[in-house]
Simulated assay, not measured.
Amino acid sequence: MHAEQLAKLRRLEAAATPGPWARTADGTAVMVAWRDDKGTMLPECWKRGGHPKLTVRGGTLEDTALIAAARNALPALLDLVDALEVAVHEQEADLAMESAMRMMAETKVETLLDRVEELEGES
Results as ranks from 00 to 15, higher is better:
102 R>L: 15
116 V>M: 11
29 A>F: 01
37 D>A: 14
114 D>G: 15
5 Q>W: 05
66 L>P: 01
98 E>G: 02
89 H>G: 06
120 E>M: 09
95 L>V: 02
108 K>N: 11
77 L>G: 06
11 R>Q: 14
98 E>L: 15
48 R>G: 03
46 W>K: 11
16 A>I: 02
39 G>Q: 02
54 L>T: 07
3 A>R: 12
63 D>M: 02
48 R>M: 03
24 T>W: 01
106 E>H: 04
44 E>W: 11
3 A>N: 10
112 L>F: 07
102 R>K: 15
69 A>E: 14
91 Q>I: 00
93 A>I: 00
106 E>A: 10
25 A>L: 11
4 E>A: 13
74 L>E: 11
78 L>A: 03
107 T>P: 00
55 T>N: 06
88 V>L: 12
111 T>A: 15
12 L>W: 08
46 W>Q: 11
110 E>K: 13
39 G>V: 06
19 G>Y: 03
8 K>F: 10
82 D>N: 09
65 A>E: 15
73 A>R: 14
36 D>E: 05
92 E>A: 09
68 A>P: 08
17 T>Y: 06
11 R>G: 05
65 A>F: 02
91 Q>M: 07
64 T>W: 00
19 G>V: 03
9 L>G: 06
69 A>R: 04
12 L>N: 11
13 E>R: 12
119 L>K: 10
41 M>W: 06
81 V>F: 02
109 V>L: 15
113 L>I: 08
102 R>A: 15
105 A>S: 10
24 T>C: 01
